[in-house]
Write a protein that binds this DNA or RNA. Structure first.
Lengths: 138, 138
DNA sequence: CTGTTTCGATTGCAAAATGCAAGTTAACAA
DNA sequence: TTGTTAACTTGCATTTTGCAATCGAAACAG
């Protein structure tokens, strides 16, 4: 009885709980579009995330099913974060947000070729970016 | 010299500064998709925004060019918030986020007809939602 | 006019989240 | 064994949030 639930949550609200903070989308961007996989790489983003915040976000992202934390077999100190399909399916969200920012902020820019492709063949671009991310981590 | 700037900001970073918090997207959702226009209406959202937070967010949204604050001529106490084109152009972002949430959270639901139309004719749906919002506030 | 209500907030304060610097632990490298 | 690296954790000051109460102006009721 208490296990069954009706679907009554707003989609925007759920998304905000998962990535509606200052840092989660930055980390996802770096993992998905910049090819970063290690903690130390994620630390170097231009925005300057604090180390404790990065750690807490990675934990939450793992709990939310966005990343899987794995050890490198050849060096057990090293950890890498693998993206789930749930995370990879946020590529369209990142691209749509980017399209908007590039239009409305004069100080913002993205790789022109990326934006051109997004306009001309969005589905193919999305698939390519997702596939590139999948290959990187296998 | 100090006035000219190169375009070197990441699009995700700009977007996060504008709506990367717990409440701005909720307010935008209510203004764009639920047809709310008044402070008292925005107070009634299911998520329960605090009155001081709503006030501060509306101020920031005005500063960021998302809304325009106007008085009702026939009742000068009343204020309504008009969406700018910059805000209306976030409709695709809201829809893309909703698509994602509905897929990955079992407790989340959106009007099925909306999601069906988003899949079958996304551009037309976006245009319709934006036009509906424009008409409402004129 | 003169209370009373409505609307859109603001204020004060406790609690939570964030940011910064320093410290910790295990694994590998020499 | 000694030092170094990677991935965090801890302590603490600052900032942001959330909650309840209050406010001022405009409208409304008698």
């Amino acid at each position: 009885m208490s296990e069954s639930q009706i679907k009554n949550r707003c989609p925007i609200d759920y998304a905000l709980e998962v990535f509606g903070d200052r840092w989660t989308l930055i980390v996802l961007r770096d993992l998905m579009l910049s090819g970063k996989r290690h903690y130390r790489e994620l630390m170097t983003s231009k925005e300057g995330i604090a180390t404790n915040i990065l750690a807490s976000r990675l934990k939450k992202m793992e709990a939310d099913g966005l990343v899987i934390r794995k050890h490198k077999p050849e060096d057990k100190r090293q950890v890498f974060y693998e993206l789930t399909e749930k995370a990879l399916d946020l590529v369209p969200v990142l691209l749509e947000i980017s399209r908007w920012s590039v239009i409305y902020d004069k100080h913002t820019a993205a790789p022109p070729e990326l934006m051109r492709r997004y306009q001309e063949e969005p589905r193919q671009l999305i698939a390519d970016l997702q596939q590139a991310a999948r290959i990187r981590q296998s």
